[in-house]
C-alpha cells in the first residue's frame, strides 16, 4: 500500500514541475501547425499522387486519420525521444543536483525501491505523452479534414496500408499502444544514464547521442545486414501496426529486443546507483 502512496508522490513531484509539460505543449503547437500547413498548402498533392498511382481515389483518404498518421512519423521519431529523454535524464540526476536525493536517502527507503518508483513514474509520463500525441493529432487534423479512411505509407519498412475509418482508428490506436514501448525505452535509456554521477543535461544529451549514433548506423546502406543490432530499428515496431497484415513475428521480435534493452538499462542503472556515494 505504501508503494502506491510513494508512486503517487513521485508523480506529484514529476507533474508539479513546469518542464514536464514542455513535450505536451510542443506537440500541441507542432500538430496544429502541420494540420494548418496541410490544409492551406499543396502538401497533400504528393499523397494524392501516391494513392492514385496505386489505383485509389485520393479524396476519401485525405482525412483526419491520414493526416494524424503522417504527422505521427516525424514527431514520434524526433520530438518524442527528445522529451522522454529529457524527463528520463532528470529523474535521478536532477534530484542529486538539487540536493533532494540526499534528503530522501536519509530515510529508510532502499535505493532499489526508489529507482523502481522513479522508473514507473517515468513510464507513466511516457504513456501519457504518447496519449497526448495521438489525441492532439486527431483533434487538430479533425478541425481541417473530414473523418474518413486511413492511408499510411512507409517505403522504408515496406508498409502500404489503406483502411476504412473504423479499421483505421483501430490501427491508429494499436500503433500508439506500441509507441509507448519506444517512449519507455528512450526514457529508460535517459534514466540509466541519470543514475551515474552526471548532470541531468549530460544524461539527456548522452541518451540522445546514443540514439542518433544508432540511427546513423542504421541508415548506412552497408550496415543493412546488421540492423537488428540497432536500438532505433526496433523502436519503429509501432509502425507495423499500420500494415494491412500485421507481421506479428516481427513485432514480437522487436518487442523482445526492446524488453531486453529496457531490462539492461534498468539493471545497469540500479547497479551503478547502488554502489554510488551520494554526497553534496
Amino acid at each position: 500500500m505504501i508503494f502506491w502512496l510513494q508512486l503517487r508522490d513521485e508523480l506529484w513531484k514529476l507533474f508539479g514541475k513546469k518542464r514536464t509539460y514542455i513535450g505536451f505543449v510542443m506537440f500541441l503547437l507542432a500538430q496544429n501547425l502541420v494540420s494548418v500547413l496541410f490544409r492551406f498548402t499543396h502538401a497533400s498533392r504528393p499523397v494524392a499522387r501516391v494513392l492514385e498511382g496505386n489505383g485509389y481515389l485520393a479524396q476519401p483518404f485525405l482525412s483526419t486519420l491520414t493526416i494524424a498518421s503522417i504527422m505521427l512519423v516525424p514527431l514520434a521519431g524526433l520530438l518524442l525521444p527528445l522529451y522522454v529523454a529529457l524527463v528520463g535524464g532528470d529523474l535521478v540526476a536532477k534530484e542529486a543536483e538539487d540536493g533532494t536525493l540526499r534528503m530522501i536517502l536519509s530515510r529508510p527507503v532502499t535505493r532499489l525501491r526508489l529507482l523502481l518508483l522513479k522508473w514507473l513514474a517515468g513510464a507513466v509520463f511516457s504513456a501519457l505523452l504518447v496519449g497526448a500525441l495521438g489525441a492532439f493529432g486527431l483533434l487538430f487534423a479533425r478541425v481541417w479534414f473530414p473523418w474518413s479512411n486511413l492511408f499510411f505509407w512507409n517505403p522504408e519498412l515496406g508498409i502500404f496500408g489503406v483502411f476504412d475509418p473504423g479499421a483505421g482508428l483501430r490501427h491508429y490506436l494499436a500503433a500508439h499502444a506500441l509507441l509507448v514501448t519506444e517512449a519507455v525505452s528512450v526514457m529508460g535509456l535517459g534514466f540509466m544514464l541519470s543514475c551515474f554521477n552526471v548532470k541531468p543535461a549530460a544524461a539527456t544529451i548522452l541518451a540522445l547521442s546514443f540514439l542518433f549514433v544508432n540511427l546513423v548506423l542504421q541508415h548506412i546502406p552497408y550496415f543493412q545486414d546488421y540492423q537488428n543490432w540497432f536500438l532505433t530499428y526496433h523502436l519503429n515496431l509501432w509502425q507495423f501496426m499500420f500494415a494491412p497484415v500485421v507481421p506479428w513475428w516481427k513485432v514480437g521480435e522487436s518487442f523482445s529486443v526492446l524488453f531486453g534493452f529496457n531490462l539492461t538499462f534498468l539493471v545497469v542503472g540500479c547497479t551503478v546507483f547502488q554502489v554510488r556515494d551520494i554526497k553534496t
Binding site: L5, Q6, D9, W12, K13, R107, P108, V109
Partner: peptide, 8 residues
C-alpha cells in the same frame, strides 16, 4: 513526500 519514504 519525504515522510512517506519512512512510513504513512
Amino acid at each position: 513526500l519525504l515522510s512517506h519514504y519512512t512510513a504513512r
